[in-house]
Amino acid sequence: MTENSAELRDTAPLVALRGVNKHYGALHVLQDIDLEIAQGEVVVLIGPSGSGKSTLCRTINRLETIDSGTIEVDGRPLPAEGRELARLRAQVGMVFQSFNLFSHKTVLENVVLAQVKVGKVAKAEAERTARELLERVGVGAQADKYPSQLSGGQQQRVAIARALAMNPKVMLFDEPTSALDPEMVNEVLEVMRSLAARGMTMVVVTHEMGFARSAANRVLFMADGRIVEESTPDAFFTAPRTDRAKDFLSKILQH
């Protein structure tokens, strides 16, 4: 990263959460979340299991609703469920831990489907885009296979291509490598690093310290529904300020 976060944050934020709260019944899963993400910024969300990372990530494209506060993407508040929201979701790419490729469609069809049905792109053009993207993430040769015939690492790269095909303004990754065998983690992180290098705005829930250090502008540490620490990757991993973060890091670094 050549630019640093401070410079990036001079412009209007691409994603802005203000005073966001959410409950699951009695559980206060997001507590007064304030977060601004600048165009081109890569933010890594880290924290113990159950701290609300996935929930936070999913509120940004409104897969989860919130109880109070506001969320803006590109200066516009998230619309209510309906056509407007669908349009916005197309601009916010999401990559899931479990890939969620459409199992009844081939790899190529997976990347083509939403372009045609949502983006109203002509089929031939959508296929051209799809092949380019599949090539770019290194699975061009698998285009005509079904997802179940691919390795986890390949499936996740297809899922990234599928999201990129909509030309999103921001990409959300929810533990994209947690379901992968260790030898496949790097091929996915490599794709994500190159995305970051091309200037994609990214929110990444991950415990991959290597990725955070090499690609992130900022690390946010979450615990119990709050963002309790926020710093550069180097500062966070070498000198965490809060006890919660120190405790958490000592646990993940043991392994």
């Binding site: 897969l63 349009r87 979701r89 197309a90 899931f96």
Partner: peptide
């Protein structure tokens, strides 16, 4: 699996699609 519908929605598909 629920993830299939979530993936579809996150790509901008409406309920009917």
């Amino acid at each position: 699996p629920l993830g299939q519908a979530e993936a579809a929605r996150s790509l901008g598909m409406g309920f009917g699609q």
